[in-house]
Design a protein around this nucleic acid. Sequence first.
DNA 1: TTGCATCTACGAATTTATTCGTATATAATC
DNA 2: GATTATATACGAATAAATTCGTAGATGCAA
Lengths: 124, 124
Amino acid sequence: MIKPTETELEILNILWQEGPSSVRIVNEKMNEQKEVGYTTTLKLMQLMTQKGLVKRDESKRTHIYNAAVKAKDLQQTMVSKLMNAVFSGSAGQLALSALGNGKASKQELDEIKALIEQLENDAK
Amino acid sequence: MIKPTETELEILNILWQEGPSSVRIVNEKMNEQKEVGYTTTLKLMQLMTQKGLVKRDESKRTHIYNAAVKAKDLQQTMVSKLMNAVFSGSAGQLALSALGNGKASKQELDEIKALIEQLENDAK
DNA sequence: TTGCATCTACGAATTTATTCGTATATAATC
DNA sequence: GATTATATACGAATAAATTCGTAGATGCAA
């Protein structure tokens, strides 16, 4: 899986959230966080198209872009990268750090418990 | 907390693992994964010193470097960054992805269960 | 149909990260 | 003490990521 840069990731997030969008839309969203010129965003999205991170519909004058990678897939890739980079490959340590850190909903916590049960059963 | 680049992170990992080390030692470890010139590693570590990522003892001719940031702290920072960058801020989703992905020891799984219990109790 | 707005393409400047050569100093070895 | 090995410092080349200006095409409104 191709690794997006920091900025490319922001764009992917916007596309995942908003669905198929024009450069203008994406640029507006980007500007909610930080000022970025229109052509900057355009160029980025063109490069992302080349890299295969997004695909676009060129049938209209205003091209419509959409993410070409699934959020789930990229999450997996990046988690595993972080796991190796700073947790010596330990999934458990990473999970602990995440839970200790931010917030998780009751439902997510239950899911995690269920997953753990399953992992422990598989291990037997 | 200052964010290390990819390569800087590798150096930090070596320092965390090996403890205070000379450039030569670090460079040798680096070369186990990928060929890197000595002065490249030296320069990186000099820059990291400026940035405050490492500190060094210059009392001897061969300077001895050590990590100036704690592994735990950087883990927290990076987990929280990843959480926001690709998990819409959800700790639970991140934890799920980590556990579903790599491997965690029985002991870690138990720790996580304990942590979850605690979180759920606190919520009451 | 003229002119203003909006779009893409693309070259290129800028910034940031990585890599390494060379100069010079100090220590160790013969 | 001359030679060789090993250090640091630092300038600068290269590579990668980000930013933006300008040109030219198309649509839209007066």
